[in-house]
Amino acid sequence: MMNKTFLLLVITFFLTSCKAQEYETEPFDLSTLSFKLNSEEFYSKSMDRKNNKFTSDRQYVEKDTLNEYDLDWTGNKNKIFGIQYRVVSYSPKDTVAFYKNLTFSRLQTLTTAQGDLMLMSATGKGSDDNIKSFIQELTAEYPNPSIKAEEFSFFKTYHYTWKINDRIIQLVSKNKIDFDQTPHQVITEKEKKDIIEIEKNRRDEIHLYICKSDYEQKLRGKLNSGEFSAFK
């Protein structure tokens, strides 16, 4: 009797472990990400068009094809580079994923044409203390990250990159506005206030990227699509 009970428990545990996780079923622990993740299955319910309605409690995800031309506007428009699963409807209050003490309101993936996961992007907001704590914790576990400042127009972000076994983890800081960054571009005080107001929500966002090491050179700094574009 005991052997049968034990066997039943083992089978139940095995079936539960093998069951594919679905997006939004519960917050996704990004520290456990496997590159064997099947994005088509992961987002299957979230790609249902009924979730495009504001009355839906679920996010709406669209599946798009990227061709080589989308990377640098010089490649082959007829050759598929990859497939992206984009979150196009969500609430900033959502918590769909976490990594240590950071939480994220949306999660997107980029796969090869065959469906192999290349890159995952998590976007959310975090306090300065939480971001600092995350960097300290990850740095305590793994070698010191490379740190790079990226500037675009009036905006500056800091990119912290850790190389960990089969993956690259990159944290992109909040956007900082520095109007002295482009002194040749003359703008009025009113324009400055307008820019600050327009960008106030996006400025507080952080991005976390998990990239399979095999695809780092192929993807870093070459993506122009949505939230993947900050992976540099």
Score class of each variant (00 low, 15 high):
37 L>K: 03
220 R>E: 11
54 F>M: 15
174 K>F: 00
68 E>Q: 05
202 R>S: 12
44 S>M: 12
216 E>N: 14
171 L>V: 01
56 S>T: 04
122 A>S: 13
108 Q>G: 01
46 S>H: 01
10 V>D: 09
185 Q>T: 10
19 K>G: 03
2 M>A: 13
202 R>E: 10
208 L>V: 07
43 Y>D: 10
129 D>R: 00
194 D>M: 05
66 L>Q: 07
104 F>V: 01
159 H>W: 03
103 T>M: 02
217 Q>N: 15
144 N>W: 02
137 E>H: 03
83 I>Y: 04
220 R>T: 12
141 E>C: 01
74 T>Y: 11
44 S>G: 02
182 T>P: 02
198 I>H: 08
125 K>T: 15
73 W>S: 05
77 K>E: 14
181 Q>M: 07
56 S>D: 10
130 N>F: 00
185 Q>G: 00
68 E>A: 05
208 L>C: 09
14 F>W: 14
160 Y>P: 01
180 D>R: 09
124 G>M: 02
190 K>P: 04
229 S>A: 15
127 S>W: 02
207 H>C: 07
89 S>M: 07
141 E>F: 04
41 E>K: 15
57 D>K: 09
181 Q>D: 03
164 I>Q: 03
15 L>D: 03
79 K>A: 13
31 S>M: 07
157 T>P: 12
165 N>R: 14
70 D>W: 07
189 E>P: 00
170 Q>A: 09
47 M>H: 06
122 A>L: 08
134 F>Q: 08
46 S>D: 08
221 G>L: 08
173 S>A: 03
84 Q>F: 01
